[in-house]
Design a binder for these strands. Structure first.
Length: 297
DNA sequence: CACCATGTTCCTTG
DNA sequence: CCAAGGAACATGGT
């Protein structure tokens, strides 16, 4: 369940549930997810510590912990990968099959379940250092975007997935934002006009904010046995009440009519990821960079 | 069996 | 040396 809005909603959900809880034990089922930290160090650091807060940076969760005798709180970093989920279970409940790590908190277990094991839960914070600005913060300015796009020949869609350009945009919201901004995903980043950059910035912020708002108002079952987990962005409502309808306008909607003009949504592959867009609303005069001419002779 | 999947990192190629 | 592209990671769904 992983892009910025899903992580943000999860963070808000977990914060009151974890605050003040004390870690009694740490059980690591997949040592890879805690790398480069060893099981021994992780246990020694976490056991006895208490949650004092939960925050987010890009797609990363930051668990603020405090151990007795230590003045300064420290951070535990989580990342959901593609399939990660985090939730509390009664200590008596069996741990699910794909549990990566479980933190025992007395009566409950805080479970990190991750089918594909691409996620992380570690004390190593170096990954966060390379992240670009938070798209919903004041740092994410038009000037910043302009500065970082104007020399790149990469298609803008591919560029938006770079976490050091802007933190938290993933494959789904990249397509959604470009659709809203009316910009072709194949347009070279350096070919965006100033007005397009401005619209793109707004579109990114709007898409993410709306998704957070939607996810925050929808009842979610993070413990996953029900059909609803944190994946509130998948909006095909099947008989359910209308909470989830039409969250996404283009993503995974190849062949469906564009909500603006009725043209069929197209799917293309860029950097080996699917991109969805409306070929009419997101037309580009200069679709791609002209292929560089071999000057060899 | 084939192909697809919300992400990141590493390796190869140009 | 740098950028771009692809594979790998590991599992499940259709």
């Amino acid at each position: 369940m992983p892009e910025l809005p899903e992580v943000e909603v999860l963070v808000r959900h977990l914060r009151p549930l974890l605050e003040r809880k004390k870690i009694r034990d740490v059980i690591v089922f997949r040592p890879k997810v805690i790398r480069p930290i060893s099981i021994r160090v992780l246990k020694r650091t976490l056991i006895g510590a208490r949650f004092v807060g939960v925050s987010r940076r890009g797609k990363y969760l930051l668990f603020h912990l405090e151990s007795v005798g230590k003045a300064r709180p420290f951070l535990l970093l989580g990342h959901l990968g593609m399939t990660g989920r985090m939730y509390l279970l009664p200590a008596t409940a069996p741990l699910p099959k794909h549990t990566s790590v479980a933190l025992n908190l007395d009566q409950q277990n805080f479970v990190f379940e991750d089918t594909r094991f691409f996620g992380r839960l570690t004390l190593d914070l170096t990954i966060v250092e390379g992240l670009g600005p938070e798209p919903l913060s004041e740092d994410f300015t038009i000037e910043y975007l302009q500065q970082h796009l104007h020399r790149s020949a990469q298609p803008i869609k591919v560029k938006l997935l770079e976490q050091r350009l802007v933190a938290g945009v993933g494959n789904i919201y990249a397509s959604e934002a470009l659709f809203r901004a009316g910009i072709s995903p194949r347009l070279a980043a350096r070919r965006l006009r100033p007005d397009q950059i401005e619209r793109l910035r707004e579109a990114i912020r709007d898409v993410l904010e709306e998704a957070i708002a939607c996810g925050s108002t929808v009842p979610l079952n993070y413990a996953g046995t029900g059909q609803r987990d944190g994946l509130f962005y998948f909006g095909r409502a099947t008989g359910t009440p209308n909470y989830y309808t039409e969250r996404l306008l283009v993503y995974d909607r190849e062949g469906h009519p564009c909500p603006n003009c009725g043209s069929f949504i197209k799917r293309v592959v860029q950097a080996s990821r699917s991109t969805y867009f409306c070929p009419k609303c997101q037309r580009a005069s200069a679709e791609r960079e002209p292929k560089r001419r071999r000057t060899s002779a």
